[in-house]
Write a protein that binds this DNA or RNA. Sequence first.
RNA 1: UGGGGCGUCGUCUAAUGGCAGGACGUCAGACUUUGAAUCUGAUUAUCAAGGUUCGAAUCCUUGCGCCCCAGCCA
Length: 781
Amino acid sequence: MAPNFITEIIDADLQAGRHTRVVTRFPPEPNGYAHLGHAFASYLDFMTALDYRGVCHLRMDDTNPEGETQEYADSIIRDMQWVGWDTSRLFYASDYYEQLYGYAVELIRKGLAYVESVSAEEMARLRGTVEQPGTPSPYRDRGVEENLELFGRMRAGEFKNGEHALRAKIDLASPNFKLRDPVLYRVLHARHYRTEDAWCIYPMYDFAHPISDAIEGITHSMCSLEFVDNRAIYDWLMDNLFPAEKTGRTPPRQYEFGRRSMEYTVVSKRKLRRLVREGVVTGWDDPRMPTLSAMRRRGVTPESVRAFASKIGVSRTNRTVDLALFENAVREDLSTRAPRVLAVTRPLRVILQNLGEERTLSLPYWPQDMIGGSADGRVPLPSGERVPAEQAVREVPLTRELVIEREDFSAAPPKGFKRLTPGGTVRLRGAGIIRCDEVITGPDGEPTELRATLLGEDAKASGVIHWVSATRGVKAEFRLFDRLFTVPEPDSEAQQFDPEQPGHEDETQPVNTDFMSFVNPQSLVVTHGLVEPSVTRDPSSARYQFERVGYFWRDPLDSRDAALVFNRIITLKDTWARKAEEAEPKAESRPRPEKKAEPAAPVARPALTSDQEPVFARLRQHGVTENDASLLAREPQLAAYLEGARDAQLAELAPWVVNDLATAIREGTNRVGMKELTALVALLAEGSISARIAKDVLAEAQASGEAPATIVERKGLRVVSDEGQLRAAIQGVLDANPAKVAEYRGGKKGLTGFFTGQVMRATNGQADPKAVARLLGEMLG
RNA sequence: UGGGGCGUCGUCUAAUGGCAGGACGUCAGACUUUGAAUCUGAUUAUCAAGGUUCGAAUCCUUGCGCCCCAGCCA
């Protein structure tokens, strides 16, 4: 796991002793199949734990009986194991139902939760709007005993769905809607796949999730960005149920990361379900789906999936990843894993007129450069066994009748075509060079057979093509998969039209903007051809590179020994195909989005109220800049800081207040008074310290509470402008970095900043920057 | 419209006031019995405008843009 904002937090927690080990958790809801998004999140959770020698729990977040099934739970567990995670620490939120109930009772006893008895609609109405605070329902102030009794009756099944709900009593006026008395429990007469009919009330995510974390001793709880607002509830529950004083350990904390989606696909469960339901794909494991079970079936390796997750990194921004990044991870893994064999997916018959007897060729599974790149000189066979390179060969029959790829022959070749043409020559991979003597065409004018001559090794050929014996080759079906959608972002291209979220349709948009209309009709192409006979002796799990075609393996469900079916895992990169496509006049390529170079409109200063105008005017009058004066006038807290300052000093003081003190003043953590600041600024004005020193000292004073001027004195800080001293310091830096000096003299003038920084560091920040700049220029020549 | 989150090459990600770096992609060249792989080189970015500073992706200000929140879903 590359260092990221979460590992930074963990490092700090470990350093400070807040935690002594790392426990994370991956909490999927078993209401669908795991997909690429789960792969990414699980990588973050499991890999972070692994890196810190901690543990990661796999927890089914199964608090909503509707839609959750054991089948989904099993499929997620299986997929997680496939990705490579240790799932031995397996938990179910549903196992905590009894404990959860107990914590709800505790909240009620503390007066922090109450039974609500208005309808859902009424509750929504009472919650208020973005502008208006919520209003308490008549039930908000029920007594503890009544709440306890009602909650018990809820559990006992005395009420119908929706009749009552348990709510936290937090803050109906909070600007954060999540805190406007969130629902903790709902009445729901539904059969749960694990607890069956034991419960008719179920806890909400916001209640069950944080408490599950606390029960399991989770230290760092990672979730995606849309839960940022929910963190307030998480912390509220920790404060009220799991304070460190009571549990003896630091409560878990929630951290949010940005989701990753991928181009040319969708991952929302609703949309995937729709693709399955409408028969666009054959099921959740259709190899075109972004689910992990689909990847497994397609032949993608778990190593590739992990490599991909690692490549895309983690940050606090939602991102849509370039499909090429995924493809690269898959190809990189397969290129060292998959032996090369020959297969023809769209056959064209070729008769070698001068070949009498059948020959048997011994061809290497690996090209020479791949063997050279192997560390131990060994390479894998299709079985996976690693053997010395000379043993990694198979027998390939060469017969009079064979087949080549249809697209490797062209009667009217485009410029740059390096394959077979009428009268032309080409090398058959591993077999020799042939010349096409005659083209037999069918009634439609398409070639149906070629007559060719096998030439000697001294013949010339510009290209190499693959082939298979027509008589000894084995018939096979090839499933050629391509991206499921024709546009990179089917979601956004769909113009926000979401049929399952009514109320948000834009009636002005034509109906065909639905993401379903972007399904790629070519996402599955099935062909029938031949594969060399050697593969029939290989285990069914073997992955191959069919030379010049792509990486393949047998479809684990549909392939039979007597009827082989190969899935194309991924194509080879194909620069020729891309060029050929570009040559066509298709206006397929979308115009590159123009860099918007709008003339920068002058940004207007915010309007001031009549109260603020005089303050602004006065500050301006004493030389405060417009920018600073405006801010000071609008924030009375800041202006108050400057009260008592002499008018003449206003201009000098204001920038420090705005640039260096404003945040602390707003937060009420400022520890540098106006008098202290004035003293510091005086030192600066008389030239005994530099602005750099002043800034550093101010920051230190803010942290320690010591007066800035005292710090200056205690540390003996003063600006160093003595030329001799500076020269010595600069020379020291230059001597220590000869390579950088050479680079600088070679023209990399940007290094000035680097040298200045080094000198400043060497002089404890005391060097006079202007003098350093001058001398540096001089000494570097 | 209230609150919150986020803006760095085409894409993903580094740089925690001091060299805007890496990966993928793309382009060009070398090599090649895979138009692959490999190797070499090139290309391109700090949302905008002001400010502080010797020096700003980073600090301050004002804008702009995108995303999330008013489920008894998670």
